[in-house]
């Protein structure tokens, strides 16, 4: 059972992501912002996929992706997906440069998100 870390400051989003991913057979972890996410990823090397919100307190999702790129975690096989209300090309390009594998604009379609996570977790 592949581990997926959800990093989102919205309890609602975390709940819905957790339900979708749990139904899909994933072991789901949660973090409430970028900083929390970075700490949890540092503590657990088994996480295969992480889903990052962009606008979060303390550390936003793109900063987290850049930090994961810098510490070698993405190159070591962690798959990063961005899930946000933002859809600006500049932000997408920045996330892509950091090594993110996908960008999904909220509200997400459960079946599409699950298919994407399954692809990356395989």
């Amino acid at each position: 059972m592949a581990k997926v870390l959800i990093v989102d400051d919205s309890a609602t989003m975390r709940q819905q992501l957790r339900q979708v991913l749990t139904t899909g057979g994933f072991d789901v972890l949660e973090a409430v912002d970028g900083q929390d996410g970075l700490e949890k990823l540092n503590a657990d090397k088994d996480v295969r996929v992480t889903i990052l919100d962009v606008n979060m307190p303390r550390m936003n999702g793109i900063e987290l992706a850049e930090a994961l790129k810098a510490n070698g975690r993405i190159d070591a096989g962690l798959n990063v997906m961005m899930l946000t209300t933002e859809g600006h090309a500049e932000l997408i390009a920045r996330a892509k440069a950091a090594g993110a594998k996908g960008w999904i604009v909220k509200p997400f379609k459960p079946e599409l998100l699950l298919a994407a996570v399954k692809k990356f977790a395989a």
Binding site: V54, G87, H88, E90, G102, P107, L112, A116
Partner: peptide
Amino acid sequence: TDGFLSDSLSPESATLDSGEMMM
């Protein structure tokens, strides 16, 4: 923390709409 990341960006630069996905 700092503002919305898109605050400093032009609204016209949005390339993805709600529910869309890019791999």
